[in-house]
């Protein structure tokens, strides 16, 4: 617990400072500060409802998909089929990009290739089905289709480039909460 707090000291300090700032904005009063507080409350509520679900799904994926299956379908040598499967996996998800990092960590642990992990991030960022539906509602089908058409080859290219540059030697994805030290702390907390 103590170690957990120590490791997060900077974050906790910022949270406290933010709390003081909000308090001051209510007392002075400072409309901009109040608005920031409202936005924070909104983001936090969304976060508190959404992110735990996301992590439970990642946990389920981790427990139920054997390493051999991921390795075969998304590993090095999975080729175009691997790109297809990892894109499909990303498209069926929801949420902001930072929600995709834990899943990327699990994919890496299970033997997905660096290329497919970065393609996963690209597809997650730009091609989630719930988001596409929303986009076509506001910006029209033509815009959404054109954007998809241009984005797909580019995030695949980013995946290839990332693998070429950082994917060969010593590449790893560390899912926080998975490593030995972190796990110990999480248990204590």
């Amino acid at each position: 617990m103590k170690q957990f707090l120590k490791r997060n000291a900077a974050h906790i300090a910022l949270a406290l400072a933010f709390g003081v700032f909000i308090l001051v904005s209510w007392l002075v009063p400072l409309p901009a500060g109040k608005e920031a507080a409202g936005r924070f409350a909104y983001f936090f509520l969304e976060f508190a409802m959404f992110v735990p679900l996301l992590f439970i799904l990642v946990g389920l994926f981790d427990v139920w998909f054997p390493k051999a299956v991921i390795e075969r379908h998304l590993g090095p040598g999975s080729g175009a089929k691997g790109i297809f499967w990892v894109t499909l996996l990303a498209m069926l998800q929801a949420g902001p990009l930072y929600g995709a990092f834990p899943m990327a960590g699990v994919l890496w642990k299970k033997g997905a290739s660096p290329r497919n992990i970065f393609i996963y991030l690209g597809a997650f960022a730009t091609l989630k089905v719930p988001m596409l539906a929303f986009e076509s509602g506001f910006l029209g089908l033509k815009f959404t289709l054109l954007r998809t058409l241009f984005t797909v080859p580019l995030f695949i290219a980013v995946g290839f480039l990332m693998e070429l540059i950082v994917g060969k030697r010593g590449f790893k994805v560390t899912p926080p909460g998975e490593g030995g030290e972190t796990t110990e702390c999480a248990k204590q907390a």
Binding site: F44, P102, G177, C185, K187, A189
Partner: peptide, 21 residues
């Protein structure tokens, strides 16, 4: 699975909070 998920969430809760702030 739930424990794994919550462990990941716990280790990231404060960094997430910072992003939101």
């Amino acid at each position: 699975a739930i424990k794994k998920g919550m462990r990941m969430l716990l280790s990231l809760a404060f960094p997430f909070l910072t992003v939101l702030i």
